[in-house]
Simulated scan of single mutants.
Amino acid sequence: MNAGRTQSDDWYLVRRDHDGSARVVAKNGELQGWRKLGSVYRGATFKAAEKVVGQVLSSGTVGVEGGVFCAPVAGPDGLPHAVLVSTTADPGEIPEVGVWEWRFPLTADAPPVLHVTPAALDQFGVGIESRDRTVYGPADFFTRAMNLSEILPHLGFLYDSDEGEQRAARTMMKGDDGEDRDLHFVEQVGSGPAGERVVRGLCWPAAYDPRALATRTLDIELATALAVAGDQFVAVGDIRFPYAPYVVKWVTSHPPGLGHGSSTGQTPGIHPDDLGRLLEYVMELGNVGPGDPAPTLAGIRARRAGGGWISGSGKGFRLSEQFYPTIWVALITPDHPEL
């Protein structure tokens, strides 16, 4: 969002706050802390910007008012979730901003559903082969994020934040093409038409600094190398929904041959005859106290790409009993594929 721009053709990313006021969340790709629109524009320019921002957020079409250019940033539902504003008459290429929306079920004790735009999938690095559905889940969002120190605060915000609460973050992603991506996130909690909890987010690339990127990934790269050397596969899972546990991310690659749905934590990845045992194991993990040994689970079969099943054994441990009690790390040793 910031490449090759000058002060006279700044791009401002603007979205509505929970009170309906227009707030500037980024300038040329740099976070701005939800500033008021009047803090960046003055006088007649502010009045024109305020008017055209309101018009574009309502209409979803490009608008120009008093020399202020405004373009919508559409969400997964096709409606404008934010706008990009410039005071240049011909601003040229409009920056790409990804949009997502988490929708929580009203009654079911289950994870939220993720709706996401193609622009966000591009920025997350989701390959075409993984875009095989229109609705996604937590595993799809987090599995490409590299650092648990960036993932877990996001999970905390997703489930524990209050109506109107906002969050800005910077998150490293490793795309399916193997390339690292450094993204800015901004999120806000709202509600849907039926009163359901909704968390809406925007993302765009941060300024590229290869040395900083490499430094931020050293810990996870070391952990991955140690796990691979130990001939184990490592996954981080969330058991806050005992009947719908999901994989947050694979620290290592997932076991060879594991079907796409299983590798991202989507059900039905577990053999029907083993699902009950897995859920019992998850319930048992939830009752493990601080310092207690975690049980081992063996013989669970997961769907194999191309048909059939693969089986293995695993053992889990908590990362933080105090702050993230539902987050577990699974150490998995696969058996031979079962045909």
Rank of each mutant, 00 (worst) to 15 (best):
P105F: 11
V97W: 14
A169R: 13
D140E: 14
V40K: 10
V97E: 14
R35P: 06
D274S: 06
D182C: 04
A26T: 10
A223D: 14
S191H: 07
Y208K: 10
A119P: 05
G308A: 04
R181C: 05
W102H: 09
F157H: 05
T87S: 00
D273G: 04
W34M: 10
G67Y: 09
S313W: 00
C70L: 11
Q266I: 05
G33P: 00
L37M: 07
E30I: 08
A145Q: 15
G308P: 03
P76T: 08
D160N: 14
G316Y: 06
F241M: 09
T171D: 14
D177S: 06
D177M: 12
G33Q: 03
S311Q: 00
H81V: 09
S262P: 06
T117G: 11
H115A: 13
E129K: 10
E93D: 08
S130P: 02
L222T: 11
D90N: 08
G164H: 05
S161W: 01
H154T: 12
E187F: 02
D9P: 04
R15E: 03
P295T: 05
V14L: 05
R211I: 05
G20Y: 11
P242L: 03
T134Q: 14
V62N: 04
D77F: 09
R144H: 14
E163P: 04
P290D: 04
P153F: 00
N287W: 10
G175Q: 01
P295Y: 02
L218K: 03
L297W: 01
P293E: 07
L202R: 11
E338W: 12
S8E: 11
W34P: 05
D9L: 06
L158I: 02
P256S: 15
V116S: 13
P290N: 07
G78E: 01
L114Y: 13
G75F: 05
S59Y: 04
D273I: 03
P245A: 12
Q232P: 01
A168H: 00
H81N: 09
I300N: 00
V251R: 05
G237T: 11
R277K: 05
E101W: 04
Y136R: 14
L226N: 10
E321R: 08
D238L: 03
E221V: 07
D335S: 09
A119V: 08
D176L: 10
